[in-house]
Nucleic acid binder design. Structure first.
Length: 587
RNA sequence: CGGGAUGUGGCUCAACUUGGUAGAGCACCUGUUUUGGGUACAGGGGGUUGCAGGUUCAAAUCCUGUCAUCCCGACCA
């Protein structure tokens, strides 16, 4: 049966809802696909449900093709498994928690690693059972501090999550590749533009992690890419270290007074006013070495300080710092930290004082000192002299100071070179639509998932996790496929294959349209039919544009000549064809 | 959690500055009209103005508090 507009549960809106800011969100509301139920929580109307089902169908087909088997876990989970992996606490406020009538703790699952791991542990105990890959398409619940843009970041959302279980690393690698290939097929079939970026595996302990990002200005993730095809998450970018410079013949370090230079900008101004450079150019912020004091807190709660020296024209990137020092928490040092370490003279911190090391485990402060990769041997810097109102000039790395190691946590800027030499980096925004991840043994260890190997020995299983945001995909598709009139679905996601507009008031128009609808359905096409007799053609055309089925057939005036019009929603092209060839034209 | 904004029929907004019977468009109902680009006209139903308290003869409007929502940032396996 065709979906008839005369009875479809739908009310399109002429005006943009005030609650929506992002175009795709406005259109999904206006065209009657979704309604807001609570912040970040949405009701799916009939049209929206059809689109969601289409996306799910593509995901399901490709998962099955990749050999994964579908299961379905509850969204309502007991506390214990999450306690076992520490995530009952780790998840913090983002976890929806509740209690049953006996006051037992439950949660609404934000993700299902624990449950999948326990399920495999429950049923399997031999290497002969592996590898196995399971998936589900399920609601997830995360009490996000700030839901955004309708379906883009919701507190309830649908995700396909898959998990692979292998006996060894080689198996994991293979499972990972298989899922990665499936993802490429999924996004290609849905017509989504995507880039695969290297992500930082961080605390999860996995060896490989890649994100599928759909480039979009409304995206929440910043990533970098080069003309030569390099792409990575900002956290994962490795800074290219320049070649070292010969130290012989460099000018000696000299301490200059530098009153009232609490910031890099004031320091550069003073340097230009008082100290001439041998090569005649002006000093810039890039000539200064800024020493940033960070406080690290370990998972056990132990607090320690670390100083990172980086070129003065760069800021520390908080996300890169978190990733680099993971699993420690990172925050700027507080006043108390400075009070406890009187050798750190705020604004005048430097690696050495009067020629002997201050920073570093070997220095007088015993505080770990790490350097940006750009600070290579032979580079000369203006930096703090560890005395109020004094800076040292021409302090040379490898001659005058050293460090305990490297910290690659400075911000990445457009124009920085790609690590693989593929050209200058460009910064772009993207929406994360998929994530493939070699989890390793973290969850298997925490939950005791072991199997016997061929020698009868217990070994811990290694896992991969693979996610696709299904409801987010609907938003991404809407955002990427629209114009000022409305949505334009790609065929793989459209609520119907064909949209027939019956334009006219005579009954025979509606009869012909019904007959045409039946013919399309007989040919295996799904059909929406605007059979509203008392609605003017203008309204019908506007609704057709708003709803966004890509292929529209206008059944009306042309019938006098035995013709209907085929209207391509995307190109706007309309052409008349014989009524009895319309079906053949669109197949 | 920090910053900004907004709460008035189902939706989009006006009235608030300067207190005095709550209004328009869209949507909905009835009738006539119109049928290849949101027809036109007439009539109609629907709001204790987020909530609580205060000032006042009188509060959507002024004051205090509170709750909620949206946007930016922080956060986001």
């Amino acid at each position: 049966m065709p979906i008839r507009l005369s009875s479809l549960f739908l009310r399109t809106l002429r005006e943009d809802p005030a609650e929506a800011e992002v175009e795709s969100h406005k259109l999904l509301l206006r065209a009657g696909y979704i309604r807001r139920a609570a912040p970040g929580v949405y009701t799916w109307l009939p049209l929206g449900l059809l689109v969601k089902a289409k996306v799910e169908a593509v995901v399901r087909e490709e998962m099955n093709r990749a050999g994964a088997q579908e299961v379905f876990f509850p969204a309502l989970l007991p506390r214990e498994p999450f306690e076992a992996t520490g995530r009952w606490t780790e998840y913090g406020d983002n976890l929806f928690r509740l209690q049953d009538r006996k006051k037992a703790d439950y949660l609404l699952a934000p993700t299902h690693e624990e449950m999948f791991t326990l399920l495999v542990k429950d049923l399997y105990s031999s290497y002969k059972d592996l590898p196995v890959c399971l998936y589900q398409i399920q609601n997830k619940y995360r009490d996000e501090a700030r839901p955004r843009a309708g379906l883009l970041r919701g507190r309830e959302f649908v995700m396909k999550d898959a998990y692979s279980f292998d006996i060894d690393d080689a198996g994991l690698e293979k499972s990972y590749q298989s899922q990665r290939d499936a993802y490429e097929r999924i996004f290609t079939r849905l017509g989504v533009d995507y880039v695969i970026v290297k992500a930082d595996a961080g605390a999860m302990g996995g060896s490989a992690s890649e994100e599928f990002l759909s480039p979009s200005p409304i995206g929440e993730d910043t990533f970098v890419r080069s003309p030569g095809g390099y792409a990575a998450n900002v956290e994962a970018v490795k800074t290219v270290a320049p070649a070292g410079i010969a130290i012989e013949g460099l000018p000696a370090a000299v301490v200059h007074p530098s009153p009232n230079t609490p910031t890099i900008a004031t320091l550069v101004d003073l340097a230009n006013a008082n100290v001439k450079r041998a090569d005649g150019r002006e000093w810039t912020a890039a000539d200064t070495l800024k020493n940033v004091v960070l406080a690290l807190t370990s998972p056990e709660g132990k607090r320690s300080l670390v100083v990172v020296g980086l070129p003065g024209d760069r800021e520390v990137d908080a996300k890169r710092a978190e990733a680099a020092f993971s699993p420690n928490e990172v925050e700027p040092a507080t006043e108390e930290d400075f009070e406890r370490n009187p050798e750190l003279v705020k604004g005048y911190i430097g690696p050495v004082k009067n020629g002997s090391a201050v920073l570093g485990l070997e220095g007088s402060s015993k505080i770990r000192y790490l350097l940006d990769p750009r600070v290579v041997d032979g580079t000369a810097w203006i930096t703090g002299a560890n005395e109020a109102e004094k800076h040292v000039f021409d302090l040379v790395k490898g001659r005058d100071f050293g460090a305990d190691g490297i910290a690659d946590i400075a911000e990445v800027r457009a124009g920085d070179p790609a690590p693989d030499g593929s050209g200058p980096l460009e910064l772009a925004r993207g929406i994360e639509i998929g994530h493939v991840f070699q989890l390793g043994r973290k969850y298997a260890e925490a939950l005791g998932l072991q199997v016997l190997d061929e020698n009868g020995k217990l070994v811990t299983v290694t896992m991969g996790s693979y996610g696709v945001g299904v409801t987010r995909m609907v938003a991404v598709l809407a955002e990427a496929n629209r114009d000022d009139k409305g949505l334009i679905w790609p065929e793989a996601a459209s609520p119907a294959d064909v949209y027939i507009v019956a334009a006219g008031k005579d009954d025979h128009v509606y009869e012909a349209a019904e007959k045409l609808a039946a013919e399309f359905e007989a040919a295996g096409k799904t059909v929406m039919l605007d059979d509203r007799q008392k609605v003017s053609p203008g309204v019908k055309f506007s609704d057709a544009e708003l709803i966004g089925v890509p292929h529209v057939v206008i059944c009306g005036k042309g019938l006098e000549n035995g013709e209907v019009d085929l209207w391509n929603r995307r190109s706007g092209e309309r052409r008349s064809v014989a009524l009895n060839s319309a079906v053949a034209e669109l197949i």
